[in-house]
């Protein structure tokens, strides 16, 4: 389990990185935190001709909470998890980050790497979808901003980023006043990729739900849960609405079978977890633990 041969560059600026991407195109792979890519290199499942290591691009690592929350693509998960700015703006993010792997993984793993790798069982793509985040992609030809939905579509282990584009920033709009969240996932072991998980952000007007955004992971791809959201908006918070949302989530969720569980089980799980997340969000008792 040793990587195949590749050429290696370690640019120190975004411009340098973009030049390298322009030069090597589809033969190149960007190395961010490496917590998913390096295993694939070791297994020789990824065999890039050229590796562009952006860990030395210091300008990609920052957290800025001025209006919207902006996070540089190379910001480490530990820093995000411990950031007061992030917790203040979107507490669902640190709740999700805490569930990603283990400390050693979070010390290297980055938000941009997680989004660009787009593992369907990863927490962040789904969470960012629920938060209506956008990413900035840059290339030598310029910059574009892509909504999470358009970045991921129904893809897994790839995104709509072009071969010469570098994901540089994640922007998350400010949360609606009074919004609350729930985050639930079910993994067979602490720190493992989840069999299913959901981030729910809701806003209520007293007892009526005015906004609901749910992002799910652990299926064939990260996804919003539109049926569940529709069941919530306009409904009174409580068991009836949450049960309807759970059922909606199960209908929306692209469940699949593998060694860890059947698709049927995962569909059931997303239902249970959605109800639990909504109970957490509503601050009601009986949320249980996942």
């Amino acid at each position: 389990m040793k990587p195949a041969v590749f050429d290696y560059s370690a640019p120190e600026s975004i411009a340098e990185a973009l030049d390298l991407l322009a030069e090597h195109g589809s033969g190149a792979k960007v190395l961010a935190g490496g917590q998913s890519l390096v295993p694939m290199l070791n297994f020789r499942l990824a065999r890039p001709a050229h590796l562009i290591d952006v860990n030395g691009v210091d300008s990609l690592s920052y957290i800025s909470a001025n209006g919207s929350l902006r996070i540089g693509a190379m910001t480490r998960l530990t820093a995000i998890g411990e950031s007061g700015d992030v917790a203040g703006a979107h507490p669902v993010i640190p709740a999700a980050v805490a569930q990603i792997g283990h400390r050693a993984i979070r010390n290297r793993g980055t938000i941009g790497g997680s989004v660009a790798h787009n593992d369907p069982a990863a927490e962040l793509p789904a969470v960012l979808m629920a938060l209506d985040a956008e990413v900035t992609a840059r290339s030598v030809d310029g910059e574009r901003v892509i909504g999470m939905q358009d970045l991921i579509e129904d893809r897994l282990f790839e995104t709509t980023l072009g071969d010469t584009e570098l994901l540089t920033e994640i922007r998350i709009p400010a949360a609606a006043a009074g919004s609350t969240f729930g985050f639930q996932e079910f993994a067979r072991r602490h720190g493992d990729f989840a069999l299913a998980g959901v981030a729910a952000v809701i806003t209520t007007d007293g007892s009526t739900i005015t906004q609901a955004a749910l992002g799910a992971f652990g299926g064939t791809h990260a996804t919003r849960l539109p049926t569940a959201e529709a069941a919530l908006v306009g409904a009174e918070t409580g068991d009836a609405a949450f049960a309807a949302a759970g059922a909606g989530a199960a209908a929306d969720f692209p469940a699949t079978s593998d060694v860890h569980g059947t698709a049927e089980y995962r569909s059931h799980l997303i239902n249970v977890l959605t109800v639990r997340a909504l109970n957490d969000a509503a601050g009601q008792a009986g949320g249980g633990n996942g």
Binding site: R188, R189, D192, V259
Partner: peptide, 28 residues
């Protein structure tokens, strides 16, 4: 937790990484 799972269709060993073959960790 631990199980070597084989795919009936392909005969492949599906549990061929430690992400698929789960050994107990501290919290298990």
């Amino acid at each position: 937790l631990e199980e070597f799972v084989y795919d009936e269709e392909s005969g492949q060993l599906l549990s061929s990484t430690l992400m698929d073959y789960l050994v107990p960790s501290f919290t298990d």
